[in-house]
Structures are given as structure tokens and as C-alpha cells.
């Protein structure tokens, strides 16, 4: 191999290297973008059952008196959390389009003041985009002194265009301790 073709080869290697580094940067950027993409995808499709984490606007599409949908309330506290957390009503039959209010009761059984936040989950997940929370205690942290009891509401509406095959929704809240500011 003469020096000329050797130089072309070295240039070729350098060029390939730049392309590969560019590709590598592309994969890194893609990886970083995956997290927000996942969140946006889940919010649009509702497939992780989280729903929207802020107050939603009332939909005035009329009430479907013919249909009854059962809404179940499930509560749990995170492992090791010394709070009591329950729904005052375990289930309720509602018509799609109606506005309802449900109450939840939480009590700090510990000896120190604590702060907690409820994280909602709706199943089946495909219903989560039809479950509108007009007001929810889960939008904010709750601070309770030792032994203090608090009753908190969620105001919700099930959109009247809820898919026909859904007859029962489960709204699950998990209470997690909050630390930091």
C-alpha cells in the first residue's frame, strides 16, 4: 500500500469516526428524551392509569341517565408509613356525566408531624382519560400533626363518552411520605 492510499484510508477512518460519534450522541440524546417522551405518551393515552395531576375542566356533555358505572375506592399507605388512610365510601354507582364528591379520611398515628402525598391510579388504565378530577386532595401535600385527623374530598366527573364496555372503574390512592421542602 502506498503512502497516498494509506492517507486516504486514515481520512476514511477519521470520517467514519465522526459519523459514529454523531450516531453515539444521537443515541444518548434519544435516551435522555425517552423519559419525557414516555411521560407525554402516557399522559396522552392514559395507559399508565395516572391521569392528569391538576384540576380539570368540567365537561358539559349531558348526563347519561341510562348508564350506571360503579366507581370503587381503594386506599393504601406506602410501606412503613404510620398513617391511617381510608375512603368513607368503598364504592358508588354513578351516571356518566354526573359530578360527584367522595371523602377520604387520613390520620397521622405517629408521634411526630408528617407530610404525605396521595398518588392516584385508575384502572382499567384506558378509563383514566375519561375520569376527570375537578378537585382533588392528591394535587397537594397533606401535613398532619401527631394524632391529627383530616377529611379530604375528591370531586370528579366521568365523561359521558366513556367506552361502552367499561362498567366498573377503580380509583386507587397510595399515600407516600414526603420529605424535603
Amino acid at each position: 500500500m502506498n503512502s497516498l492510499s494509506l492517507r486516504t484510508q486514515q481520512q476514511g477512518i477519521r470520517r467514519t469516526l465522526w459519523w459514529l460519534l454523531l450516531m453515539l450522541c444521537g443515541s444518548v440524546a434519544f435516551t435522555v428524551a425517552l423519559v419525557p417522551l414516555y411521560d407525554v405518551f402516557c399522559e396522552l393515552t392514559g395507559i399508565n392509569g395516572k391521569g392528569v395531576n391538576s384540576a380539570q375542566v368540567l365537561q358539559s356533555t349531558g348526563i347519561d341517565q341510562q348508564r350506571n358505572v360503579e366507581v370503587q375506592m381503594v386506599t393504601r399507605t406506602a410501606a412503613g408509613m404510620n398513617w391511617h388512610f381510608s375512603a368513607t365510601l368503598s364504592h358508588k354507582a354513578v351516571h356518566p356525566g354526573e359530578i360527584h364528591q367522595m371523602w377520604f379520611r387520613m390520620q397521622n398515628l405517629g408521634r411526630t408531624t408528617g407530610r404525605a402525598r396521595a398518588v392516584p391510579s385508575i384502572s382499567p388504565a384506558e378509563a383514566s382519560n375519561y375520569f376527570l378530577k375537578l378537585e382533588c386532595f392528591c394535587f397537594n401535600d397533606q401535613q398532619l400533626a401527631a394524632g391529627e385527623v383530616l377529611e379530604v374530598p375528591v370531586v370528579f366527573q366521568i365523561r359521558s363518552d366513556l367506552p361502552e364496555d367499561l362498567h366498573r372503574l377503580t380509583l386507587a390512592y397510595t399515600l407516600y411520605p414526603q420529605t424535603g421542602p
Partner: peptide, 25 residues
């Protein structure tokens, strides 16, 4: 491989720096 690196980096941040990539709370 960058995706793997990304995942373990997020774990590192979740464990040591209080982020919540994989933490529902």
C-alpha cells in the same frame, strides 16, 4: 449501550440525589 448507561444513571440519581425517575411517590 447508551440506553443502558442512561438507565443506570437514573438509578444512581434516584438512589443518591433524591430524584424520582422510577419512584411512584
Amino acid at each position: 449501550m447508551p440506553v443502558l448507561a442512561g438507565v443506570v444513571t437514573m438509578m444512581l440519581l434516584d438512589i443518591n440525589f433524591g430524584t424520582s425517575f422510577f419512584n411512584a411517590a
